[in-house]
Design a protein around this nucleic acid. Structure first.
Lengths: 227, 227
DNA sequence: TCAAAAGTGTTTACAATACACCCATGA
DNA sequence: TCATGGGTGTATTGTAAACACTTTTGA
Protein backbone atom coordinates (compact mmCIF):
# COMPACT_ATOMS: atom_id res chain seq x y z
CA UNK A 1 0.00 0.00 0.00
CA UNK A 2 1.68 3.20 -1.10
CA UNK A 3 0.67 6.80 -1.15
CA UNK A 4 -1.27 6.87 2.06
CA UNK A 5 -1.92 10.46 2.90
CA UNK A 6 0.24 10.53 6.00
CA UNK A 7 3.36 9.87 3.94
CA UNK A 8 4.95 12.75 2.14
CA UNK A 9 3.41 12.46 -1.28
CA UNK A 10 5.48 11.86 -4.37
CA UNK A 11 4.14 15.11 -5.74
CA UNK A 12 6.43 17.20 -3.56
CA UNK A 13 9.26 16.90 -6.06
CA UNK A 14 7.49 18.29 -9.09
CA UNK A 15 5.64 21.39 -10.09
CA UNK A 16 1.94 21.26 -10.14
CA UNK A 17 -0.50 24.08 -10.62
CA UNK A 18 -4.20 24.27 -10.05
CA UNK A 19 -6.29 26.93 -11.70
CA UNK A 20 -9.94 27.75 -12.05
CA UNK A 21 -11.53 28.72 -15.35
CA UNK A 22 -14.97 30.24 -15.51
CA UNK A 23 -17.42 29.84 -18.35
CA UNK A 24 -19.53 32.97 -18.02
CA UNK A 25 -22.71 32.87 -20.04
CA UNK A 26 -25.34 35.45 -20.76
CA UNK A 27 -27.89 36.05 -23.50
CA UNK A 28 -27.40 38.91 -25.92
CA UNK A 29 -29.22 39.41 -29.22
CA UNK A 30 -31.13 36.21 -28.60
CA UNK A 31 -27.94 34.18 -28.57
CA UNK A 32 -26.03 32.44 -25.83
CA UNK A 33 -22.77 34.31 -25.35
CA UNK A 34 -19.62 33.48 -23.44
CA UNK A 35 -17.20 35.99 -21.97
CA UNK A 36 -13.62 35.64 -23.24
CA UNK A 37 -10.41 37.55 -22.73
CA UNK A 38 -7.72 37.89 -25.33
CA UNK A 39 -4.22 36.94 -24.35
CA UNK A 40 -0.84 36.68 -26.04
CA UNK A 41 0.82 33.30 -25.76
CA UNK A 42 4.62 33.44 -25.59
CA UNK A 43 4.73 29.77 -26.38
CA UNK A 44 2.59 29.88 -29.48
CA UNK A 45 3.65 33.40 -30.54
CA UNK A 46 0.10 34.40 -31.16
CA UNK A 47 -2.92 35.87 -29.49
CA UNK A 48 -5.90 33.77 -28.71
CA UNK A 49 -8.99 33.94 -26.61
CA UNK A 50 -9.26 32.31 -23.21
CA UNK A 51 -11.77 31.88 -20.44
CA UNK A 52 -11.37 34.12 -17.43
CA UNK A 53 -9.46 32.23 -14.77
CA UNK A 54 -6.19 31.91 -12.95
CA UNK A 55 -4.13 30.05 -10.42
CA UNK A 56 -5.47 29.37 -6.98
CA UNK A 57 -3.80 30.85 -3.93
CA UNK A 58 -2.46 28.76 -1.06
CA UNK A 59 -5.31 29.22 1.39
CA UNK A 60 -8.13 30.00 -0.95
CA UNK A 61 -11.14 27.73 -1.52
CA UNK A 62 -11.61 26.79 -5.16
CA UNK A 63 -14.84 28.69 -5.55
CA UNK A 64 -13.36 31.79 -3.91
CA UNK A 65 -10.57 31.64 -6.44
CA UNK A 66 -13.07 31.60 -9.27
CA UNK A 67 -14.95 34.53 -7.74
CA UNK A 68 -11.79 36.53 -7.13
CA UNK A 69 -10.34 35.95 -10.58
CA UNK A 70 -13.59 36.78 -12.25
CA UNK A 71 -13.96 40.00 -10.26
CA UNK A 72 -10.38 41.01 -10.97
CA UNK A 73 -10.39 40.29 -14.68
CA UNK A 74 -13.91 41.35 -15.59
CA UNK A 75 -15.35 43.36 -12.72
CA UNK A 76 -18.11 40.82 -12.28
CA UNK A 77 -19.28 40.19 -8.73
CA UNK A 78 -22.15 38.47 -6.99
CA UNK A 79 -22.73 35.94 -9.70
CA UNK A 80 -24.33 32.50 -9.93
CA UNK A 81 -21.53 29.94 -9.93
CA UNK A 82 -21.41 26.17 -9.95
CA UNK A 83 -18.57 23.71 -10.34
CA UNK A 84 -18.57 22.09 -13.76
CA UNK A 85 -15.75 19.60 -14.17
CA UNK A 86 -12.03 19.24 -13.56
CA UNK A 87 -9.74 19.01 -16.57
CA UNK A 88 -6.38 17.45 -15.92
CA UNK A 89 -4.84 15.95 -19.05
CA UNK A 90 -1.09 16.10 -18.39
CA UNK A 91 -0.42 17.66 -21.80
CA UNK A 92 -3.17 20.26 -21.69
CA UNK A 93 -0.64 22.97 -20.91
CA UNK A 94 2.61 22.97 -22.89
CA UNK A 95 4.92 24.21 -20.12
CA UNK A 96 3.81 22.56 -16.91
CA UNK A 97 1.16 20.43 -15.28
CA UNK A 98 -1.89 22.61 -14.85
CA UNK A 99 -5.10 21.10 -13.57
CA UNK A 100 -8.08 23.35 -13.91
CA UNK A 101 -11.35 23.25 -12.07
CA UNK A 102 -13.94 24.68 -14.44
CA UNK A 103 -16.94 26.66 -13.20
CA UNK A 104 -20.14 27.69 -14.89
CA UNK A 105 -21.34 31.24 -14.22
CA UNK A 106 -24.48 33.00 -15.35
CA UNK A 107 -25.01 36.75 -15.71
CA UNK A 108 -28.53 38.20 -15.82
CA UNK A 109 -29.20 39.70 -19.24
CA UNK A 110 -29.60 43.19 -17.78
CA UNK A 111 -26.13 43.06 -16.23
CA UNK A 112 -24.32 41.80 -19.30
CA UNK A 113 -23.84 45.33 -20.56
CA UNK A 114 -22.06 46.33 -17.32
CA UNK A 115 -19.17 44.00 -18.07
CA UNK A 116 -16.00 45.68 -19.24
CA UNK A 117 -16.33 45.38 -22.98
CA UNK A 118 -12.85 46.23 -24.11
CA UNK A 119 -10.93 44.88 -27.13
CA UNK A 120 -9.47 42.33 -24.70
CA UNK A 121 -12.65 41.25 -22.95
CA UNK A 122 -15.62 40.48 -25.11
CA UNK A 123 -18.82 38.49 -25.32
CA UNK A 124 -18.72 35.86 -28.04
CA UNK A 125 -21.62 34.00 -29.57
CA UNK A 126 -21.11 30.35 -28.63
CA UNK A 127 -21.88 29.34 -32.19
CA UNK A 128 -19.09 31.53 -33.57
CA UNK A 129 -16.12 31.06 -31.32
CA UNK A 130 -12.62 32.12 -32.32
CA UNK A 131 -9.60 29.88 -31.81
CA UNK A 132 -9.38 29.20 -28.12
CA UNK A 133 -6.55 28.73 -25.68
CA UNK A 134 -5.69 25.14 -24.75
CA UNK A 135 -8.80 23.02 -24.20
CA UNK A 136 -11.09 25.95 -23.48
CA UNK A 137 -13.33 25.08 -26.43
CA UNK A 138 -13.97 21.70 -24.84
CA UNK A 139 -14.74 23.34 -21.51
CA UNK A 140 -17.26 25.70 -23.10
CA UNK A 141 -18.88 22.81 -24.95
CA UNK A 142 -19.38 20.92 -21.71
CA UNK A 143 -20.72 24.02 -19.94
CA UNK A 144 -23.19 24.58 -22.71
CA UNK A 145 -24.50 21.02 -22.60
CA UNK A 146 -24.77 21.20 -18.82
CA UNK A 147 -26.82 24.37 -19.15
CA UNK A 148 -29.09 22.82 -21.77
CA UNK A 149 -29.83 19.79 -19.60
CA UNK A 150 -30.45 21.89 -16.50
CA UNK A 151 -33.11 23.91 -18.29
CA UNK A 152 -35.19 20.75 -18.38
CA UNK A 153 -35.23 19.95 -14.68
CA UNK A 154 -34.34 23.10 -12.78
CA UNK A 155 -35.08 26.79 -12.52
CA UNK A 156 -31.53 27.72 -13.53
CA UNK A 157 -32.79 30.03 -16.30
CA UNK A 158 -33.87 32.47 -13.59
CA UNK A 159 -30.18 33.14 -13.00
CA UNK A 160 -30.07 34.70 -16.45
CA UNK A 161 -33.22 36.78 -15.98
CA UNK A 162 -33.38 40.27 -14.48
CA UNK A 163 -34.70 40.59 -10.92
CA UNK A 164 -38.05 41.57 -12.44
CA UNK A 165 -38.86 39.88 -15.71
CA UNK A 166 -41.76 39.17 -18.00
CA UNK A 167 -42.63 35.62 -18.97
CA UNK A 168 -41.77 36.41 -22.57
CA UNK A 169 -38.30 37.51 -21.52
CA UNK A 170 -37.82 34.23 -19.69
CA UNK A 171 -39.09 32.33 -22.71
CA UNK A 172 -36.57 34.15 -24.89
CA UNK A 173 -33.80 32.91 -22.60
CA UNK A 174 -34.97 29.33 -23.07
CA UNK A 175 -35.27 29.77 -26.80
CA UNK A 176 -31.83 31.29 -27.14
CA UNK A 177 -30.17 28.44 -25.25
CA UNK A 178 -32.16 25.62 -26.83
CA UNK A 179 -32.08 27.25 -30.27
CA UNK A 180 -35.69 26.36 -30.87
CA UNK A 181 -38.97 28.17 -30.41
CA UNK A 182 -41.42 27.13 -27.72
CA UNK A 183 -45.18 27.35 -27.46
CA UNK A 184 -46.14 30.43 -25.48
CA UNK A 185 -49.12 28.95 -23.63
CA UNK A 186 -47.34 25.74 -22.63
CA UNK A 187 -44.28 27.66 -21.54
CA UNK A 188 -46.29 29.95 -19.29
CA UNK A 189 -48.15 27.05 -17.72
CA UNK A 190 -44.87 25.28 -16.98
CA UNK A 191 -43.10 28.27 -15.45
CA UNK A 192 -46.07 29.44 -13.41
CA UNK A 193 -46.13 26.01 -11.78
CA UNK A 194 -42.72 26.72 -10.23
CA UNK A 195 -43.14 27.44 -6.57
CA UNK A 196 -40.29 29.91 -6.50
CA UNK A 197 -41.90 32.33 -8.92
CA UNK A 198 -44.38 35.04 -8.01
CA UNK A 199 -46.12 37.76 -9.92
CA UNK A 200 -45.87 41.42 -8.98
CA UNK A 201 -48.30 44.23 -9.67
CA UNK A 202 -45.78 46.00 -11.82
CA UNK A 203 -45.69 46.00 -15.59
CA UNK A 204 -43.16 46.48 -18.35
CA UNK A 205 -44.70 49.62 -19.94
CA UNK A 206 -43.97 52.11 -22.72
CA UNK A 207 -43.49 49.40 -25.29
CA UNK A 208 -45.95 50.27 -28.01
CA UNK A 209 -47.95 47.17 -27.24
CA UNK A 210 -49.89 45.80 -24.32
CA UNK A 211 -47.80 46.03 -21.14
CA UNK A 212 -46.52 42.76 -19.71
CA UNK A 213 -46.75 41.70 -16.09
CA UNK A 214 -43.47 41.47 -14.20
CA UNK A 215 -42.55 38.41 -12.14
CA UNK A 216 -39.83 37.77 -9.62
CA UNK A 217 -38.07 34.91 -7.84
CA UNK A 218 -39.71 34.53 -4.48
CA UNK A 219 -37.47 34.92 -1.40
CA UNK A 220 -34.38 32.89 -2.11
CA UNK A 221 -32.61 33.21 -5.37
CA UNK A 222 -31.63 29.57 -5.08
CA UNK A 223 -31.68 26.98 -7.78
CA UNK A 224 -34.72 24.73 -7.57
CA UNK A 225 -35.23 21.31 -9.04
CA UNK A 226 -38.54 20.60 -10.70
CA UNK A 227 -40.58 17.56 -9.70
CA UNK B 1 -4.78 41.72 -15.14
CA UNK B 2 -2.72 39.31 -13.11
CA UNK B 3 -2.24 35.60 -13.16
CA UNK B 4 -2.37 35.12 -16.90
CA UNK B 5 -1.15 31.64 -17.64
CA UNK B 6 2.02 32.75 -19.40
CA UNK B 7 3.36 34.32 -16.24
CA UNK B 8 4.96 32.12 -13.67
CA UNK B 9 2.08 31.40 -11.35
CA UNK B 10 2.16 32.43 -7.74
CA UNK B 11 1.65 28.79 -6.86
CA UNK B 12 5.26 27.91 -7.64
CA UNK B 13 6.36 28.95 -4.19
CA UNK B 14 4.08 26.75 -2.16
CA UNK B 15 3.27 23.10 -1.84
CA UNK B 16 0.16 21.85 -3.47
CA UNK B 17 -1.01 18.28 -3.87
CA UNK B 18 -3.69 16.79 -6.02
CA UNK B 19 -5.15 13.42 -5.25
CA UNK B 20 -7.98 11.29 -6.50
CA UNK B 21 -10.41 9.50 -4.21
CA UNK B 22 -12.72 6.82 -5.48
CA UNK B 23 -16.16 6.03 -4.09
CA UNK B 24 -16.57 2.38 -5.05
CA UNK B 25 -20.11 1.13 -4.73
CA UNK B 26 -21.62 -2.30 -5.03
CA UNK B 27 -24.71 -4.04 -3.69
CA UNK B 28 -24.35 -6.73 -1.04
CA UNK B 29 -27.13 -8.17 1.12
CA UNK B 30 -29.58 -5.84 -0.58
CA UNK B 31 -27.70 -2.80 0.64
CA UNK B 32 -25.57 -0.24 -1.08
CA UNK B 33 -22.01 -0.72 0.11
CA UNK B 34 -18.89 1.38 -0.23
CA UNK B 35 -15.32 0.07 -0.23
CA UNK B 36 -13.11 1.58 2.47
CA UNK B 37 -9.57 1.05 3.63
CA UNK B 38 -8.42 1.47 7.19
CA UNK B 39 -5.48 3.75 7.82
CA UNK B 40 -3.62 5.09 10.82
CA UNK B 41 -3.39 8.85 11.02
CA UNK B 42 -0.18 10.15 12.61
CA UNK B 43 -1.81 13.52 13.01
CA UNK B 44 -4.90 12.33 14.80
CA UNK B 45 -3.19 9.40 16.55
CA UNK B 46 -5.99 7.07 15.60
CA UNK B 47 -7.15 4.74 12.89
CA UNK B 48 -9.98 5.65 10.65
CA UNK B 49 -11.48 4.55 7.41
CA UNK B 50 -10.77 6.27 4.13
CA UNK B 51 -11.73 6.03 0.49
CA UNK B 52 -9.24 4.36 -1.81
CA UNK B 53 -7.17 7.06 -3.49
CA UNK B 54 -3.81 8.73 -3.65
CA UNK B 55 -1.68 11.45 -5.15
CA UNK B 56 -1.47 11.89 -8.86
CA UNK B 57 1.80 11.41 -10.70
CA UNK B 58 3.41 14.12 -12.82
CA UNK B 59 2.37 12.86 -16.24
CA UNK B 60 -0.70 10.90 -15.35
CA UNK B 61 -4.23 11.83 -16.41
CA UNK B 62 -6.60 12.20 -13.47
CA UNK B 63 -8.71 9.23 -14.40
CA UNK B 64 -5.64 7.04 -14.91
CA UNK B 65 -4.56 7.97 -11.43
CA UNK B 66 -7.88 6.83 -10.03
CA UNK B 67 -7.64 3.57 -11.99
CA UNK B 68 -4.05 2.93 -10.93
CA UNK B 69 -4.63 3.68 -7.26
CA UNK B 70 -7.73 1.56 -7.18
CA UNK B 71 -5.96 -1.37 -8.82
CA UNK B 72 -3.01 -1.05 -6.50
CA UNK B 73 -4.95 -0.74 -3.27
CA UNK B 74 -7.82 -3.09 -3.95
CA UNK B 75 -6.97 -5.21 -6.98
CA UNK B 76 -9.96 -3.83 -8.83
CA UNK B 77 -9.56 -3.34 -12.56
CA UNK B 78 -11.76 -2.63 -15.56
CA UNK B 79 -14.36 -0.75 -13.64
CA UNK B 80 -17.03 1.82 -14.44
CA UNK B 81 -15.68 5.22 -13.41
CA UNK B 82 -16.98 8.76 -13.68
CA UNK B 83 -15.74 12.03 -12.27
CA UNK B 84 -17.86 13.21 -9.39
CA UNK B 85 -16.66 16.51 -7.96
CA UNK B 86 -13.49 18.27 -6.86
CA UNK B 87 -13.07 19.03 -3.19
CA UNK B 88 -10.61 21.78 -2.38
CA UNK B 89 -11.30 23.44 0.94
CA UNK B 90 -7.92 24.76 2.06
CA UNK B 91 -8.33 23.23 5.53
CA UNK B 92 -9.58 19.84 4.43
CA UNK B 93 -6.16 18.32 5.11
CA UNK B 94 -4.39 19.34 8.35
CA UNK B 95 -0.83 19.31 7.03
CA UNK B 96 -0.88 20.71 3.53
CA UNK B 97 -3.09 21.84 0.71
CA UNK B 98 -4.59 18.75 -0.86
CA UNK B 99 -7.16 19.10 -3.57
CA UNK B 100 -8.92 15.88 -4.41
CA UNK B 101 -10.80 14.94 -7.52
CA UNK B 102 -13.45 12.44 -6.46
CA UNK B 103 -14.61 9.63 -8.73
CA UNK B 104 -17.62 7.36 -8.59
CA UNK B 105 -16.97 3.69 -9.41
CA UNK B 106 -19.40 0.80 -9.67
CA UNK B 107 -18.62 -2.90 -9.27
CA UNK B 108 -21.01 -5.54 -10.62
CA UNK B 109 -22.53 -7.50 -7.76
CA UNK B 110 -20.92 -10.74 -8.93
CA UNK B 111 -17.45 -9.20 -8.75
CA UNK B 112 -17.82 -7.65 -5.32
CA UNK B 113 -16.68 -10.88 -3.68
CA UNK B 114 -13.42 -10.85 -5.67
CA UNK B 115 -12.25 -7.70 -3.90
CA UNK B 116 -9.58 -8.17 -1.29
CA UNK B 117 -11.63 -8.40 1.89
CA UNK B 118 -8.99 -8.02 4.54
CA UNK B 119 -9.29 -6.35 7.94
CA UNK B 120 -7.93 -3.23 6.24
CA UNK B 121 -10.12 -3.22 3.15
CA UNK B 122 -13.79 -3.80 3.64
CA UNK B 123 -17.23 -3.15 2.23
CA UNK B 124 -19.35 -0.94 4.46
CA UNK B 125 -23.07 -0.42 4.37
CA UNK B 126 -23.58 3.24 3.43
CA UNK B 127 -26.17 3.55 6.16
CA UNK B 128 -23.73 2.42 8.83
CA UNK B 129 -20.46 4.16 8.13
CA UNK B 130 -17.67 4.37 10.68
CA UNK B 131 -15.80 7.61 11.39
CA UNK B 132 -14.24 8.65 8.15
CA UNK B 133 -11.00 10.37 7.20
CA UNK B 134 -11.19 14.10 6.43
CA UNK B 135 -14.25 14.97 4.37
CA UNK B 136 -14.73 11.48 2.97
CA UNK B 137 -18.20 11.19 4.51
CA UNK B 138 -19.24 14.23 2.51
CA UNK B 139 -17.78 12.74 -0.66
CA UNK B 140 -19.68 9.49 -0.16
CA UNK B 141 -22.88 11.39 0.49
CA UNK B 142 -22.53 13.27 -2.78
CA UNK B 143 -21.69 10.07 -4.67
CA UNK B 144 -24.75 8.39 -3.28
CA UNK B 145 -27.06 11.21 -4.26
CA UNK B 146 -25.52 11.31 -7.74
CA UNK B 147 -26.18 7.59 -8.11
CA UNK B 148 -29.77 7.95 -6.93
CA UNK B 149 -30.52 10.68 -9.44
CA UNK B 150 -28.87 8.81 -12.29
CA UNK B 151 -31.10 5.79 -11.72
CA UNK B 152 -34.00 7.95 -12.85
CA UNK B 153 -32.68 9.02 -16.22
CA UNK B 154 -29.93 6.60 -17.25
CA UNK B 155 -29.07 2.95 -17.48
CA UNK B 156 -26.29 3.29 -14.91
CA UNK B 157 -27.71 0.43 -12.81
CA UNK B 158 -26.49 -1.97 -15.50
CA UNK B 159 -22.95 -1.18 -14.32
CA UNK B 160 -23.84 -2.91 -11.06
CA UNK B 161 -25.43 -5.95 -12.72
CA UNK B 162 -23.61 -9.10 -13.84
CA UNK B 163 -23.01 -9.54 -17.56
CA UNK B 164 -26.04 -11.81 -17.63
CA UNK B 165 -28.78 -10.85 -15.23
CA UNK B 166 -32.44 -11.45 -14.54
CA UNK B 167 -34.90 -8.59 -14.36
CA UNK B 168 -35.50 -9.35 -10.70
CA UNK B 169 -31.80 -9.01 -10.00
CA UNK B 170 -31.80 -5.61 -11.71
CA UNK B 171 -34.86 -4.61 -9.74
CA UNK B 172 -33.13 -5.57 -6.50
CA UNK B 173 -30.29 -3.20 -7.44
CA UNK B 174 -32.76 -0.36 -7.83
CA UNK B 175 -34.52 -1.24 -4.61
CA UNK B 176 -31.28 -1.40 -2.64
CA UNK B 177 -30.15 2.03 -3.82
CA UNK B 178 -33.51 3.75 -3.55
CA UNK B 179 -34.37 1.96 -0.31
CA UNK B 180 -37.92 1.40 -1.45
CA UNK B 181 -39.72 -1.44 -3.19
CA UNK B 182 -40.90 -1.12 -6.75
CA UNK B 183 -43.80 -2.66 -8.64
CA UNK B 184 -42.57 -5.66 -10.59
CA UNK B 185 -44.74 -5.18 -13.67
CA UNK B 186 -44.02 -1.48 -14.04
CA UNK B 187 -40.33 -2.05 -13.50
CA UNK B 188 -40.13 -4.71 -16.22
CA UNK B 189 -42.01 -2.51 -18.66
CA UNK B 190 -39.66 0.37 -18.02
CA UNK B 191 -36.44 -1.61 -18.33
CA UNK B 192 -37.52 -3.61 -21.38
CA UNK B 193 -38.11 -0.29 -23.16
CA UNK B 194 -34.36 0.43 -22.95
CA UNK B 195 -32.81 -0.04 -26.34
CA UNK B 196 -29.53 -1.28 -24.90
CA UNK B 197 -31.04 -4.34 -23.26
CA UNK B 198 -31.65 -7.67 -24.95
CA UNK B 199 -32.93 -11.01 -23.81
CA UNK B 200 -30.97 -14.21 -24.20
CA UNK B 201 -32.24 -17.76 -24.45
CA UNK B 202 -30.50 -18.69 -21.23
CA UNK B 203 -32.11 -19.01 -17.86
CA UNK B 204 -31.10 -18.79 -14.22
CA UNK B 205 -31.92 -22.39 -13.22
CA UNK B 206 -31.66 -24.70 -10.19
CA UNK B 207 -33.38 -22.26 -7.93
CA UNK B 208 -36.28 -24.23 -6.55
CA UNK B 209 -38.70 -21.99 -8.35
CA UNK B 210 -39.52 -21.15 -11.92
CA UNK B 211 -36.32 -20.30 -13.84
CA UNK B 212 -35.82 -16.67 -14.83
CA UNK B 213 -34.77 -15.47 -18.25
CA UNK B 214 -31.32 -13.89 -18.49
CA UNK B 215 -30.76 -10.51 -20.16
CA UNK B 216 -27.66 -8.69 -21.26
CA UNK B 217 -26.49 -5.23 -22.30
CA UNK B 218 -26.45 -5.17 -26.07
CA UNK B 219 -23.09 -4.42 -27.76
CA UNK B 220 -21.63 -1.47 -25.93
CA UNK B 221 -21.52 -1.42 -22.21
CA UNK B 222 -21.91 2.35 -22.35
CA UNK B 223 -24.10 4.46 -20.19
CA UNK B 224 -27.32 5.46 -21.92
CA UNK B 225 -29.64 8.31 -21.14
CA UNK B 226 -33.35 7.60 -21.21
CA UNK B 227 -35.64 9.78 -23.31
C1' DT C 1 -48.34 -30.72 -3.21
C1' DC C 2 -46.15 -26.96 -1.51
C1' DA C 3 -43.22 -22.93 -1.38
C1' DA C 4 -41.05 -19.48 -3.92
C1' DA C 5 -40.12 -16.46 -7.32
C1' DA C 6 -41.22 -15.69 -12.58
C1' DG C 7 -44.07 -13.83 -15.66
C1' DT C 8 -47.99 -11.25 -17.62
C1' DG C 9 -52.32 -6.66 -19.09
C1' DT C 10 -55.56 -3.42 -18.20
C1' DT C 11 -57.42 0.57 -16.15
C1' DT C 12 -56.72 5.08 -14.30
C1' DA C 13 -54.61 9.35 -13.35
C1' DC C 14 -51.58 12.78 -14.61
C1' DA C 15 -48.44 15.39 -17.51
C1' DA C 16 -47.09 17.16 -21.93
C1' DT C 17 -48.49 18.69 -26.32
C1' DA C 18 -50.92 20.90 -30.00
C1' DC C 19 -53.44 24.57 -31.26
C1' DA C 20 -56.09 30.10 -32.32
C1' DC C 21 -58.09 34.04 -30.89
C1' DC C 22 -58.91 38.46 -28.32
C1' DC C 23 -56.57 42.34 -25.55
C1' DA C 24 -54.10 46.59 -24.36
C1' DT C 25 -51.01 49.85 -25.64
C1' DG C 26 -48.10 53.47 -28.37
C1' DA C 27 -47.41 55.33 -32.61
C1' DT D 1 -56.68 52.30 -36.79
C1' DC D 2 -52.90 49.67 -37.03
C1' DA D 3 -48.97 47.04 -35.63
C1' DT D 4 -47.02 44.62 -31.87
C1' DG D 5 -46.47 41.57 -28.49
C1' DG D 6 -49.49 40.12 -24.07
C1' DG D 7 -52.53 37.06 -22.39
C1' DT D 8 -55.75 33.00 -22.17
C1' DG D 9 -58.26 27.36 -22.36
C1' DT D 10 -59.34 22.95 -24.14
C1' DA D 11 -58.91 18.65 -26.35
C1' DT D 12 -55.68 14.99 -27.25
C1' DT D 13 -51.92 12.12 -26.64
C1' DG D 14 -48.60 9.76 -24.21
C1' DT D 15 -46.53 8.31 -19.99
C1' DA D 16 -46.56 6.66 -15.17
C1' DA D 17 -48.95 4.30 -11.58
C1' DA D 18 -51.94 1.09 -9.40
C1' DC D 19 -53.26 -3.38 -9.16
C1' DA D 20 -53.77 -9.74 -8.85
C1' DC D 21 -53.42 -13.93 -10.70
C1' DT D 22 -51.23 -17.94 -13.24
C1' DT D 23 -46.85 -20.49 -14.29
C1' DT D 24 -42.78 -23.20 -13.53
C1' DT D 25 -39.58 -25.36 -10.95
C1' DG D 26 -37.05 -27.96 -6.91
C1' DA D 27 -37.72 -29.82 -2.64
Amino acid sequence: MINTLTQLPSSTAWLLHVSTDIVVFTIKQNHLQVLLRQRYSETLKKSDWALPGGYIRPTEPLEDSAVRTLAHQTGIGNVYLEQLYTFGRPDRHPKSRVITVAYLALIPVDHAADIIDSPNIRWHDVSQLPDLYLDHAEIIKLARSRLVSKLAYSTIALQLAPALFTLSELQQIYEAILEESLDKRNFRKRVLAWECIESTKQQRANRSHRPARLYRCSKTNELHYIK
